[in-house]
Design a protein around this nucleic acid. Structure first.
Lengths: 232, 232
DNA sequence: CGGATGATTGATATATCTCAAGAGTAGTGG
DNA sequence: CCACTACTCTTGAGATATATCAATCATCCG
C-alpha cells in the first residue's frame, strides 16, 4: 500500500514543497519508498546513474576516493535534502547511509521529466544547488587552509547546528548524537583518525565540549568553540 | 555604441546559447560590456550581490579567506563561464580578474527575471551549476587527501587541458601560459609558495615538464604527469 | 565472559611550513 | 642602453604540525 505524500514528514521541506498536491500526485506515481540500512550504498561512483530521491529520514554521506583508497567525504545529506544527479549518465561519488534511513526514490528520467514539466521544481532545485555549491566552496577553505584544531571545532559547530535538539533554545549545553565514526569524521576533515581523536580530547580538556559517549558531543562553551573554529 | 550579440565571441558557448536571437535581443538591452583590468575585483565577499555576468575574455578567480588572511581560491572562470550568484542577497566570495578581461554584465534582478522568462536558460544554468558542483567536490579530494606532488601535478594537468593551444593535436609537448602567480597557485592547492616552487622544479628535473619562463609550462611527458597526479 | 571493533594515547617519523638568503625578471628613468 | 629598484621566484636550513606505527583502553554483542 502506497503512503500518501500528504502524510510525508518532509512534504513541505523537500523539493516537493514547490509542487501542488495535484502535481505531486502525478509525480508520486513514478516514485516509491525505500528503506536503507545503515552502511548500505545507494549510489556507486562511476556506476550508471539511475535514481534521484528525496531523503525522508536518516543521514547519508557522499564520498570520493583515490585509486589507492584514500577517501574524502564531500557532503552529508539530511532529511528533506535531495539525492542524485540529474542530467548526468553516471555518478561521480558514492552515496552511503550513515544511519538507517528512508528515501523517496524516482527513476532519474522521470525526475528529469518532472523538472521539465514543473518550472517551480526546477527553480527550487537550482536554488538549492547554488546553496550547496556555496557550502562546498566554504568547506574548501577548511580543507585547504585550516589547522586540525580549527577543522575539528568547525565540524562540531556545523554538526551541532544541524543536529542539536533545542535549536531554538539556549545556544549552549546542547547535546547531539554523531552519525559518523571517528574514521568518517577524519574523512570529512582531511585528517587521520588519531588527529581527530586528539583534538577532541583537547577540546574536552579545555572545557569547551563534553564527550558523554564516544558518539555524542555536548557543547559546553559555544563562543569558545566558535573562536577555535576561526582562529588557531 | 553597443556591440551586437551576434558578433560576440562566446555567443554559442555561454548561457546565451540557450536563447534565440530575439530573446537575446531583449535580454541584451539590460546588459553592458565591461572591461576589467588584471588584478581588479568585480565582486567582494560579503558585499551586496548586484551583478551577474558572462565571461567574454580573460580569466577570473573566486576566493574566500579566513579572518587572519589565509586565502583559498575556490574556483577559476574562463571565457563563456557564468559569473555571479542569482537568488542570494550577498556574495560569499571575492571575484578578481587574473588577466585583463571582458565581461557581459547584467543587473542581478534582470538576470533573475530572464531565468524566470526563459526556461531553457534556467535549465542550462542548472546543468552548469551541477557540473560545477561535481568539479568542486572532486577538488575537495585533492585538498583533503592528496600530497603536494599530486596536487601540483593535478593542477598542471587541469590547466593544460583548459589552456593548451593544440588541444586537438598531440597530447604532449603542449605549452601554455599560466594566468596565476606562484602565490595564487599555492592558494588554489592549499600549499605554500615554497612547496609549489619545489614541486615544480622536481617535476622539471624529472623531465616531466619544462618551465621555459616562470609563467609558462610545457608538458613533456603527459602519462608520467598524470601518474604523479594520481599516486604519490 | 570473551572476542571483535572502534577509540584513545604514546613515541617517532616525515611532509610541509617557516624563516632567511640569493637569483631571476621586469619595469623605470637617467 | 644601461643601471637601479622592486618584485617574484627559487633554494636552503631548520622547526613543527600532522601522519604513522604501536599499544592500551573502551564499548558493544553474542
Amino acid at each position: 500500500m502506497r503512503r500518501a505524500c500528504s502524510e510525508c514528514g518532509v512534504r513541505d521541506q523537500a523539493l516537493c514543497a514547490s509542487l501542488t498536491d495535484d502535481q505531486l500526485a502525478v509525480l508520486s506515481r513514478a516514485g516509491r519508498r525505500r528503506y536503507v540500512a545503515k552502511g548500505e550504498s545507494v549510489i556507486w561512483a562511476g556506476d550508471e546513474n539511475m535514481i534521484c530521491a528525496n531523503v525522508v529520514a536518516g543521514v547519508f554521506k557522499l564520498s570520493t576516493s583515490t585509486a589507492d583508497g584514500r577517501e574524502q567525504i564531500v557532503g552529508l545529506l539530511y532529511p528533506a535534502d535531495f539525492l542524485g544527479r540529474p542530467y548526468a549518465p553516471s555518478s561521480n561519488y558514492t552515496v552511503d547511509a550513515l544511519t538507517d534511513a528512508e528515501l523517496c526514490v524516482f527513476p532519474r528520467k522521470h525526475f528529469e521529466q518532472a523538472l521539465h514539466d514543473y518550472e517551480e521544481l526546477e527553480r527550487l532545485l537550482l536554488q538549492r544547488t547554488l546553496d550547496e555549491l556555496d557550502n562546498t566552496r566554504e568547506w574548501m577553505l577548511l580543507l585547504g587552509r585550516k589547522t586540525a584544531e580549527e577543522k575539528v571545532a568547525s565540524f562540531i559547530v556545523q554538526m551541532s547546528r544541524r543536529l542539536a535538539k533545542g535549536r531554538c533554545g539556549a545556544s549552549t549545553g546542547e547535546e547531539f548524537l554523531l552519525p559518523l565514526s571517528r574514521t568518517q569524521v577524519a574523512d570529512v576533515l582531511g585528517l587521520t583518525i588519531e588527529t581527530v581523536s586528539r583534538q577532541m580530547t583537547r577540546l574536552k580538556s579545555a572545557g569547551v565540549i563534553d564527550l558523554p559517549t564516544t558518539r555524542s558531543i555536548r557543547v559546553l562553551d559555544r563562543p569558545a568553540l566558535s573562536a577555535r573554529a576561526e582562529h588557531a
